[in-house]
């Protein structure tokens, strides 16, 4: 019994990571209807940036966030202004294919720079520390920290979207980009800020990914898929839905892995397909939009 409790608890905590993957993806789709196929590869890019920063500065990976987050946010803004804004329009094909091409470029660029070897960040003792909740049930400090941060990120995004000028601008541009210009909003700049924010979240997710698991240049697409599954399971237009979707995905994967290690990812896919078949609007997806 406690073994299962343990499995579920681990799954919930991993779900926080998936929720962060999902939140960045969902934010971009919400603001500019862009599905960023390179999202997973950008997460892996953030992991490599963290690797370089920790190597160069000798920082603890968690502290490296101070550098990685602004670096990735800048990458996001420049990427949007320099490339992605040009692909946006009525037709869904250009943004899709441009981000797909970007994904291939990122994967192979990382391969070129860092080889195909698996890497991992050491968090100096933090990665083995744990809190014992009951007999047979103990949770790692790092996963707990990561989950808390995920909740914080999503709460922060929610606050930003509904209580700040920038959030108001995001919603206005999403509703009606043409009329938004009449309010003095420069859509290209607003989109740039949205992508910067998305990649700031990606940076946090990437650092935790790097500390918790091995990564290599080819691991991006799977992160994209997990984030995407969390978005759909949780419900397209709901920020808190991404957290619910991430947690559910994490738990289902953990249970699948407990039954047979080969079923971990497959179980998540099956859960995703089941949600799609039975409740395509997602668990928290309501009537809005």
């Amino acid at each position: 019994m406690t073994a299962w409790l343990n499995t579920i608890a681990q799954g919930v905590l991993v779900g926080g990571l998936y929720a962060m993957f999902a939140a960045g993806l969902s934010l971009i789709f919400g603001v500019m209807k862009l599905v960023n196929i390179a999202h997973g590869d950008l997460i892996v890019l953030a992991a490599y940036v963290a690797l370089m920063v920790t190597d160069a500065l000798g920082l603890n990976p968690i502290l490296s966030l101070i550098v990685v987050v602004p670096v990735m946010a800048t990458v996001g803004y420049l990427l949007q202004r320099g490339l992605l804004n040009r692909a946006l329009g009525e037709d869904i094909l250009p943004p899709l294919l441009v981000t797909f091409g970007l994904s291939v470029i990122l994967q192979n660029g990382l391969l070129q720079l860092f080889s195909a070897d698996s890497r991992r960040l050491q968090a100096g003792g933090l990665d083995v520390a744990s809190v014992k909740l009951a007999e047979g049930l103990s949770l790692g400090v790092l996963p707990l920290l990561q989950f808390a941060l995920a909740v914080l990120v999503i709460a922060g995004l929610h606050w930003l979207f509904y209580h700040t000028r920038l959030g108001r601008a995001f919603r206005a541009v999403s509703d009606d980009p043409r009329v938004a210009q009449l309010m003095g909003l420069d859509n290209r700049h607003v989109f740039g800020l949205a992508m910067a924010l998305s990649l700031a979240i990606v940076a946090v997710a990437g650092v935790f990914l790097a500390v918790r698991t091995n990564f290599d240049p080819a691991t991006g697409p799977a992160r994209l898929i997990f984030g995407f599954e969390a978005v759909i399971i949780g419900g397209l237009s709901s920020l808190w839905g991404t957290l619910v979707g991430g947690i559910l995905l994490g738990v289902v994967q953990a249970i699948g892995a407990e039954i047979d290690p080969g079923w971990q990812v497959l179980a998540g896919h099956v859960a995703f397909l089941a949600v799609l078949a039975i409740r395509p609007q997602g668990l928290l997806g309501g009537a809005r939009r």
């Binding site: 789709f29 209807k33 862009l34 599905v35 196929i37 869904i92 943004p95 899709l96 697409p221 994209l224 898929i225 995407f228 599954e229 759909i232 896919h269 995703f272 397909l273 799609l276």
Partner: peptide
């Protein structure tokens, strides 16, 4: 649209 793309990938 674009979500179909990733769905087909899954």
């Amino acid at each position: 649209g674009a979500y179909f793309a990733i769905g087909s990938w899954v």
